[in-house]
């Protein structure tokens, strides 16, 4: 089973966006030429890429920052339309006082499987004390968090909020809370490896491609910038496949992973089995 843990559903026709909202999503996400497309496009992409499931990640933002790209309710609706293909996460705006309540509702009533947060975009430090109620909700319901980590090419983002080291305190305080530091924390891939080694509740994903093509960039980041056997020998249970679709292309990224010099069993973990374990099932 191949699972893409990092897909943005901000341009899906079935949500019924107005032209104005679509354009706002383009500007908010920095995907300036992305066209609206239907769920059938995802289904065909999955067939061509031999992908079985997409984990879709909404993003909650205050109105002045463009508003939610997709709401939790819309995410749940999409999952309801394609339960065989989609798994939905929730998002909350940590600056809102009722964020913990919104999250609890998303887990209990909407059936969403985890939480997506983007500290660079939402401009908070993961170790801020006001985040504690949100983390406690995740712990109570045994739901994982996917944090944006490392550089973000979206406008209105600051890297200081997403450097891998700012996540350590949260991992330290919440050893049972599974958290994915997405994008391998690029360019700080070695720091992410250090954190995964020290905290086994930390995961990462492969949604990184900022130079070259997937094969070349994965080789550079996962076989040169870090030891070529680090993942295969020591971190194989903590790396998940993610694409960052629609910013990046799934098909070539999956092929690039299959071409990497590591055990076939490690590739199977990365491509799907780790995601199942991270989410506590599908």
């Amino acid at each position: 089973m191949v699972i893409d843990m990092h897909v943005h559903p901000a341009f899906i026709k079935e949500i019924g966006y107005s032209k104005e909202k679509l354009e706002k999503n383009r500007q908010v996400l920095g995907l300036y030429k992305t066209e609206e497309f239907g769920l059938e496009q995802w289904r065909r992409d999955c067939q061509v890429s031999e992908l079985d499931r997409l984990c879709i990640l909404p993003l909650a933002l205050p109105e002045k920052a463009g508003g939610d790209t997709v709401t939790n309710e819309q995410t749940a609706e999409l999952v309801k339309k394609c339960p065989d293909m989609l798994t939905g996460f929730a998002s909350v705006n940590p600056s809102e006082k009722n964020a913990a309540d919104v999250l609890e509702y998303a887990f209990t009533e909407l059936g969403l499987k985890g939480l997506k947060l983007h500290p660079s975009k939402q401009q908070f430090f993961p170790g801020d004390r006001f985040m504690e109620p949100i983390y406690q909700i995740c712990e109570r319901y045994e739901k994982p968090i996917i944090f944006h980590c490392g550089v973000s090419m979206e406008p209105g983002t600051l890297v200081k909020y997403s450097h891998p080291l700012v996540f350590e305190e949260t991992a330290y305080r919440h050893p049972k809370l599974k958290m994915c530091l997405a994008h391998f924390g690029w360019p700080w891939v070695k720091e992410v490896c250090m954190l995964m080694l020290k905290y086994r509740n930390i995961y990462t994903d492969t949604a990184l491609l900022y130079f070259d093509n997937p094969r070349e960039f994965y080789h550079q980041c996962m076989e040169v910038d870090i030891g070529p056997r680090w993942i295969d020998r020591s971190l194989r249970h903590q790396v998940m496949f993610g694409s960052d679709d629609p910013r990046l292309e799934q098909r070539r990224m999956i092929q690039a992973i299959r071409q990497m010099d590591m055990r076939d069993s490690t590739k199977e973990l990365i491509l799907g089995k780790n995601a199942v374990e991270f989410m506590g099932g599908i």
Binding site: G30, L31, Y32, D212, N213, P214, R215, R247, R252
Partner: peptide, 21 residues
């Protein structure tokens, strides 16, 4: 070939996305 050396394999500011095709 898919694994050829192409210039069109870089981040495109106008798109906010990688050139991959």
């Amino acid at each position: 070939p898919e694994d050829g050396d192409y210039y069109h394999a870089r981040f495109l500011d106008d798109y906010g996305a990688m050139a991959g095709n």
